Simulated scan of single mutants.
Amino acid sequence: MNISLKDEAIFIADSHFNQKNQELLHLLKRVENKGLNISQLFLMGDIFDFLSCECKYFIKQNEEVINLLNKLSDNLEIVYLEGNHDFNLQKLFPNIKVINRNNQPYFIKMQEEKVGLSHGDNFINWQYELFCKIIRNSIFLKFMNFIDINFFISKQLEKALLNKNICHNISDFEKLVEKRVKNYDSDVIIEGHYHQGKTFVFGNQKYINVSSLCCQKDYLRFKENKFFIEKLKD
């Protein structure tokens, strides 16, 4: 554990930034203009609706946010946990600590407690693990980029993502979480991915699911040794 959680840190999850979901850009501009006081920024995955360093179309589409994050990283500690929509990112964010899926959970220190961070799409099944390895393969992505004539494939993917409904309630979410916490050797577990924004306690472990920035319009703040939800301001 080489990172300690600082007072006034914030956690952003599942902003799915695209032409439709602009909340992330709004929040980052507030940080840039000193309108939001933060000490650390934890990006919990699926920050972009789609992004990888191999996909030229989506790099261009997300250029403003990529540049803004890199600018902020000059003076702000940023930790980016890759999700299932954003991966192979380190080349795009040279000053940001990027945690790929294979290195999640990523553990940080909170005073005397241990905090485990993951996007949340791990510990599922072997079929999904295989899919994740294929879709993140750099050779495969470069090949797809090569055959993406006039960005036909990328534009079809973008259209599908724009039309997808990602805001929903999981009725049995507590049962799902109870199984997930068994994979963590930590006092606190923080995940994104599920877009639920709920907290549970199981024995000595506290589980926090960070809200989706584009669905619930909020994020998680750590202040005075407590976690609480903070609404995105206009």
Rank of each mutant, 00 (worst) to 15 (best):
K142V: 04
C132H: 04
V188C: 08
E191L: 12
S171A: 14
V188G: 06
F202R: 04
F131N: 10
F173T: 09
K182D: 11
N163L: 11
L162K: 07
L162P: 06
I135S: 10
S138C: 07
N183M: 03
D148R: 06
E178Q: 14
N150E: 13
N169V: 12
F123V: 02
I135P: 04
D121P: 03
K164I: 11
F151A: 13
G197E: 07
Y184F: 14
K175A: 15
V201E: 13
N204I: 01
I166S: 09
I147G: 06
E129V: 05
F131V: 11
M144S: 00
G120Y: 00
K182P: 06
Q156R: 11
N150R: 13
L161M: 14
V177P: 01
I135D: 03
N163R: 13
I166K: 08
Q196E: 13
I124S: 09
K179I: 04
E174W: 04
N204M: 02
Y184I: 01
K155F: 07
C167P: 03
W126K: 15
G120N: 03
N163E: 15
Y184R: 00
Q196H: 08
F202T: 01
K142T: 04
V188H: 09
E191A: 05
I134C: 03
I166P: 00
T199S: 15
L141C: 06
S171V: 14
I153N: 05
Y128P: 00
C132G: 08
R180F: 04
H193A: 01
F173S: 11
H168K: 14
Q205N: 09
I153H: 03
N163C: 07
K175H: 14
F152Q: 10
L162C: 06
K175L: 14
